[in-house]
Design a protein around this nucleic acid. Structure first.
Length: 484
RNA sequence: GGCUCCUUGGUCAAGUGGUUAAGACACCGCCCUUUCACGGCGGUAACAUGGGUUCAAAUCCCGUAGGAGUCACCA
């Protein structure tokens, strides 16, 4: 059996959205699962859409996600160059295009933009152009003459209007389309660059790609590819079209519609492993019911035959859950380090930030959840006295006042101000008074944090806050309660 | 509009002729708990639709409906 070779072939036009990322992931997994080669090829045939620094983004994203390629622009594996503009310079595309012209599978076209415009027709809510093969009838002499005159030209694929073309996709099975539907697509543009479609076929073949992994949006152009492979007499690779990833409105994810790129997600506080893990599960499922996978585990488990056909909605909710799982499983030091900048957004005082990180670790899903959760450490927020009323603990402002007044002195005089000692103190007081512990804890929490929900118990908050601040906050609560 | 693909709970999904139609997220309830969270237990909720084929259909066939993709000198 021949080695499996897959490729990720992005065009450098900006940030990488999750659909792209998943395509890259699947291509990587398919290659690695089979012990094959994963390649990066840069498709920069559109000179106008180039975006400065986009190649860096691609590299950075692949590096961050762990999708290490075996061959690429900076890693020659003998199939280079790996950048299409460099391959174009060698004349490879033109050479193959001319070969097709020789075979009658392609032809020169000198039509002007204006003439093409006149072919434009309305189709539903869209305008489309179907080329009318006008230049196919040009004689050899006319073509020579036009070329000699330097009239701009393109080379188009010649698809007959009769018959049908079939192709086989590993996921979708056999698909057959009428040739009349297949436009005579441009192979070589008037600037001499190949189009994506043509460069793809030439490169995939010359670079030994065995499995073409790409998005479902290309499904309808696959038959044209097949015709090209057949015209050249090349072996058709295995096609694996991945189902679309859509937003909650079932529209294809795209940069243009403002959908999140991988880097956006990282900026939003997701961890890279969680994003990769989540994206792997959009459109593919393992044989067992497992959901949490490292990249290595995905490599082992990934069988592309289990890729599904129907589009998948990108569900941020579930990504958040998964991210939370990753945070919980993360080791403490690493979490503290990653959480640090978010903690510092809310806290400038010299508190025990690692301790706070620990509190927050099992209670958040993404890092941005942190600041609003802990801001009370920095400064006691204004709060409503109604917070002192709690049904479960059967307490209210009046009872809270009693409790706080009953506790404040012993807290002030406490020798040890750590969590355990404080808890003992609270418990002792509760027992002595015949209260439930929660009945005492509740007012303390409110007084200390001004919040009904805190990332830790009252005694732990006191430890972090320190005696002075804690007592001050409790006294303040007593004042407020008295006044009301 | 033509062509192509898709259609199991709100979402991701298992399921390939016989199942009480898994599981996860979300939601709800209970338990645990120093609140919340975590964790544990439980619950609501699905085979788009109409015809076939078959003893038997979520699974096979046909139609219908709905959705999506695509129809550039963009990829």
């Amino acid at each position: 059996m021949t080695e499996v070779r897959t490729r990720f072939a992005p065009s450098p036009t900006g940030r990488m959205h999750v659909g792209n990322l998943r395509t890259a992931l699947y291509a990587y997994l398919i290659a690695k699962h089979a012990g094959g080669t994963f390649m990066l090829r840069i498709e920069d045939t559109d000179q106008e859409r180039q975006v400065e620094g986009a190649v860096d983004i691609i590299n950075r994203t692949l590096e961050m996600t762990g999708l290490e390629y075996d061959e690429g622009p900076d890693k020659d594996g003998g199939y280079g160059p790996y950048v299409q503009s460099e391959r174009k310079a060698s004349g490879i595309y033109m050479k193959y295009a001319k070969e097709l012209v020789e075979k009658g599978e392609a032809y020169y076209c000198f039509c002007t933009k204006e003439r093409l415009e006149s072919l434009r027709t309305q189709a539903g809510d869209k305008e489309i152009v179907v080329y009318d093969k006008h230049c196919l009838s040009l004689s050899k002499e006319e073509i020579e003459e036009n070329l000699a005159k330097g009239i701009p030209y393109v080379i188009r694929q010649n698809v007959p209007n009769e018959g049908t073309t079939k192709f086989v996709d590993e996921i979708y099975g056999e698909i057959e389309v009428p040739n009349a539907e297949l436009d005579d697509m441009i192979l070589i543009k008037s600037d001499g660059y190949p189009t994506y479609n043509f460069a793809n076929v030439v490169d995939d073949h010359t670079m030994g790609i065995t499995h073409v992994v790409r998005g479902n949006e290309y499904l309808s152009s696959a038959p044209k590819y097949n015709r090209l492979y057949e015209a050249f007499g090349w072996e058709v690779p295995v096609y694996i079209h991945c189902p679309l990833i859509t937003d909650e409105n079932h529209q294809k994810l795209s940069k243009r519609s403002g959908h999140s790129s991988f880097e956006d997600l990282i900026d939003q506080g997701f961890v890279r492993e969680a994003v990769v893990n989540y994206v792997a599960l959009l459109g593919w499922s393992p044989e067992d019911n497992r959901e949490i996978f490292t990249l290595e585990e995905l490599v082992k488990a990934f069988d592309y035959h289990h890729i599904s056909k129907s589009p998948a909605v990108f569900d941020v909710q579930k990504l958040r859950w998964m991210n939370g799982e990753y945070l919980k499983a993360m080791d403490e030091e690493k979490f503290a380090e990653m959480a640090r900048p978010w903690i510092e957004k809310a806290i400038t005082k010299p508190l025990d930030l690692d301790r706070i990180a620990k509190m927050v670790k099992t209670r958040i899903e993404v890092f941005p959840d942190i600041p609003p959760m802990i801001d009370f450490f920095e400064e006691l927020p204004e709060y409503d006295l109604s917070l002192f009323t709690n049904k479960k603990w059967k307490t209210d402002s009046e009872k809270s006042l009693t409790v706080l007044e009953g506790m404040v002195d012993s807290l002030e005089n406490a020798k040890a101000f750590d969590n355990d000692s404080l808890y003992e103190l609270v418990q002792a007081y509760a027992q002595e008074q015949g209260y439930k512990t929660g009945f005492v804890i509740w007012p303390l929490r409110i007084a200390l944090s001004g919040k009904a929900v805190t990332p830790a118990g009252a005694t732990e908050i006191m430890e972090v806050l320190g005696k002075e601040e804690s007592v001050a906050r409790i006294r303040k609560a007593i004042e407020m309660l008295k006044q009301s």
